[in-house]
């Protein structure tokens, strides 16, 4: 889409590009929305340590930007309404639902997806533990489960198996691999606790 020549539009785009300066629209006096509302805008996302420049509509969610624009299809679309957790990614180390996050709202944060957890060929300990404990069947929820578990460990509130179940409840597994998911998370947690007492 070619950039608009409309001065308000240009100011708006520059405002967003500048990372938070809201120009142009604030001065609008007309009650009517502009006819070209919702046009693609430039944004810079940091995904798994890499800066990616995109030109997409503000209504594109982070999940759709990852999957459809950046072709990082590890993050899955289950419900698309924040109810299943398959889309879970980390922003600045905190687990969030990427289906309810606008891509443009994530600009400026460090996004980590399932593709960013392994170091080269070396799996993240949680990835390895999910394989060891057979913590999935179909695998569709697994990227979200693992990203969620990374967030859970960083939060540090889950001690018992019951805590893990409660604090992993934002990730639904329709194959019912829950017992093995809890075992995988607990093994990695306990190993981490031994290494960093």
């Amino acid at each position: 889409m070619a950039p608009s020549d409309d001065p308000d539009r240009r100011d708006f785009i520059q405002g967003v590009t500048a990372g938070g300066l809201a120009l142009g629209l604030g001065a609008a006096t007309s009650a009517d929305p502009p006819a070209d509302v919702g046009q693609p805008i430039p944004m810079k996302l940091t995904i798994n340590g890499q800066d990616r420049e995109l030109q997409i509509e503000p209504r594109v969610t982070l999940l759709d930007a990852l999957r459809e624009v950046l072709h990082l299809t590890g993050s899955k679309k289950g419900c698309d309404h924040g109810q299943c957790g398959a889309c879970t990614v980390l922003i600045d180390g905190r687990r969030v639902n990427s289906c309810l996050t606008l891509a443009v709202a994530a600009a400026g944060g460090q996004v980590t997806t399932i593709e960013g957890l392994a170091k080269g060929e070396e799996l993240h300990p949680l990835q390895a533990a999910f394989i060891k404990h057979d913590a999935f069947q179909c695998g569709y929820c697994t990227p979200g489960q693992i990203c969620s578990a990374v967030g859970l460990m960083a939060e540090g509130h889950a001690k018992s198996d019951a805590d893990v179940r409660e604090l992993m409840s934002g990730n639904i597994c329709r194959c019912g691999a829950y017992p093995n998911i809890v075992a995988a998370v607990q093994e990695v947690q306990q190993l981490a606790a031994k290494e960093n007492p």
Binding site: F12, G15, V16, G19, G20, L21, A22, L25, G26, P34, V37, G38, Q39, I41, E57, P58, R59, L102, V104, A105
Partner: peptide, 15 residues
């Protein structure tokens, strides 16, 4: 979602 514009407010009053 229907199309919408997005701005990041730089202060409560501006928002």
């Amino acid at each position: 979602m229907t199309p919408f514009d997005y701005v990041r407010a730089d202060g409560p009053d501006a928002a």
